[in-house]
């Protein structure tokens, strides 16, 4: 008898567990499941290009330094957001972002369209010591970025992993990842032309940190900041915004 009772009690605990799972999972399933088919509703962007290996490395530095804690990359459909930062962000623009960096806090301004708004030189000075260019700023200084060489040898495996989660990098891109990262930061090198061949004419090839002899983390981060909002022009086409994307050559 006690044995039987014991079993019954155990069952109630298990039944209880099941009830919690049933109650709690449905909200998530109902909200998230339809997003699996979100591709059908995401706007089309034929001109969408992928992050170059250098930009991807810069993105990883942006993540490593926790930039997302103070900077959003999501312009909302609000008038003041649009007038301050540019056309509101479209879902397609972060289609290849693993993970997304939409952010949740603006201790500093939104960066979704910061690409091309400032010169490379400005970014380097700003990252080295923000208060040299914006005296009121409370952003940390990142002087070590310009001192630290960028790790190039494993960029191929980064691209391969990105492909395994759904980003359409080609074999050629993966094989040339390290070369392309070098070439994008050293415009005079022979590797430079391959970057624009593989990633498009719009790709910015530049000595981002002003030093052409080596590729630093500063090069990568500035390259990433300069491409923000410029992977596709879809946001400028599909909205009423009269603005043109900023062009650093202007």
């Amino acid at each position: 008898m006690p044995e039987l009772l014991h079993r019954k009690l155990e069952r109630t605990a298990i039944g209880f567990v099941l009830a919690i799972i049933v109650a709690a999972s449905v909200g998530g399933i109902v909200e998230i499941a339809p997003l699996f088919t979100i591709d059908e509703t995401v706007e089309n962007a034929d001109d969408m290009r992928l992050y170059t290996p250098l930009e991807l490395a810069g993105r990883n530095i942006y993540i490593r330094e926790g930039c997302y804690a103070c900077h959003s990359q999501m312009i909302r459909t609000l008038r003041d957001d649009v007038e301050r930062y540019g056309p509101f962000s479209l879902a397609v623009e972060s289609r290849y972002d693993h993970p997304m960096l939409w952010g949740s806090k603006r201790t500093g301004p939104d960066l979704a369209r910061v690409g091309g708004k400032y010169s490379d030189f400005w970014h380097v000075a700003h990252l080295t010591n923000p208060r040299d260019v914006v005296p009121e700023s409370n952003m940390p200084a990142y002087p070590w970025l310009a001192r630290t060489p960028l790790r190039l040898d494993d960029l191929g495996s980064h691209l391969r992993t990105q492909r395994s989660v759904g980003v359409p990098y080609t074999d050629e891109m993966i094989d040339n990842a390290a070369r392309d990262a070098f070439g994008q930061a050293v415009p005079d090198s022979q590797q430079a032309s391959g970057v624009t061949e593989r990633y498009g004419e719009e790709t910015q090839v530049s000595a981002f940190d002003g030093v052409t002899t080596r590729v630093t983390e500063m090069d990568a981060l500035v390259a990433y900041l300069q491409v923000l909002g410029r992977l596709t022009k879809a946001a400028y086409r599909n909205t009423a915004a009269p603005e043109q994307p900023p062009n650093p050559n202007d």
Binding site: V22, V26, V30, E31, A33, P34, T37, I38, E40, T41
Partner: peptide, 23 residues
């Protein structure tokens, strides 16, 4: 045929029935 619309529709209808039944 599992399209975005069917999923959204299921979420909006069955989700509601589920909520009422559960309560």
């Amino acid at each position: 045929d599992l399209t975005h619309e069917t999923l959204v529709e299921a979420a909006k209808t069955w989700g509601l029935f589920y909520l009422i039944g559960f309560s």
